[in-house]
């Protein structure tokens, strides 16, 4: 049987999985950017609906000053180095800073943390703070609480889908076009 033509493959989405402390940016509309098991980590999705550029960052900690060497090698691990890296990569593909739609997911918190293991909260606070200083607002969030989440950004449509661990249904965090 002859191999399928490129046109025949057009309907197949390519899923790119972003791991912990990693990010991916693309303008390939056949791609879905996904990340799993967020826990206290925070996923930041950005999408420019005009240029159809999408990015996904899976960050683990708020502040890179704890390990500058690690931050240099793996900026996506921290909010303060990962966010700029995410946006810079998107700008390279002509995304517009004020046009991008930003969504946040993750940042789960243990019960009664008392500031001890409140990494989820601190991640969220750090990202909102950093974005605020750039004059950027967040479009939609699904953060905090007692659940672990997985997120996917469809670069073709800009839709952001979210799944909560242990539950069957997907929910839509952000509608596509």
């Amino acid at each position: 049987m002859p191999s399928p033509s490129l046109a025949a493959l057009a309907g197949f989405d390519q899923k790119i999985v972003v791991g912990v402390g990693d990010l991916a940016v693309t303008n390939n509309q056949a791609v879905v950017l996904a990340t799993y098991s967020l826990g206290s980590c925070l996923a930041v999705t950005i999408y420019d609906p005009v240029m159809r550029v999408g990015g996904l960052l899976h960050l683990m900690l708020p502040d890179s000053s704890i390990n500058a060497v690690k931050a240099a090698r793996q900026p996506a691990m921290f909010a303060d180095t990962g966010l700029p890296a995410l946006f810079q990569a998107a700008y390279q593909m002509k995304a517009n800073k004020h046009r991008v739609r930003i969504c946040l997911a993750g940042g789960a918190q243990f019960m009664g943390s008392n500031g001890v293991f409140s990494i989820g909260q601190r991640n969220y606070g750090a990202v909102v703070g950093l974005l605020g200083r750039q004059g950027l607002k967040v479009h939609a969030t699904e953060v905090g609480g007692l659940v672990s989440r997985s997120v996917a950004l469809d670069v073709g449509t800009g839709e952001v889908r979210l799944r909560i661990s242990g539950r069957m249904e997907n929910m839509t965090l952000c509608e596509g076009h």
Binding site: G39, C41, M111, V147, G166
Partner: peptide, 19 residues
């Protein structure tokens, strides 16, 4: 707690744990 933080808890209400 570390495992949960990294997203390797499990099941429903994965974080319904007191730290």
């Amino acid at each position: 707690m570390l495992a949960h933080t990294l997203g390797h808890g499990y099941g429903h209400q994965a974080y319904a744990v007191r730290c």
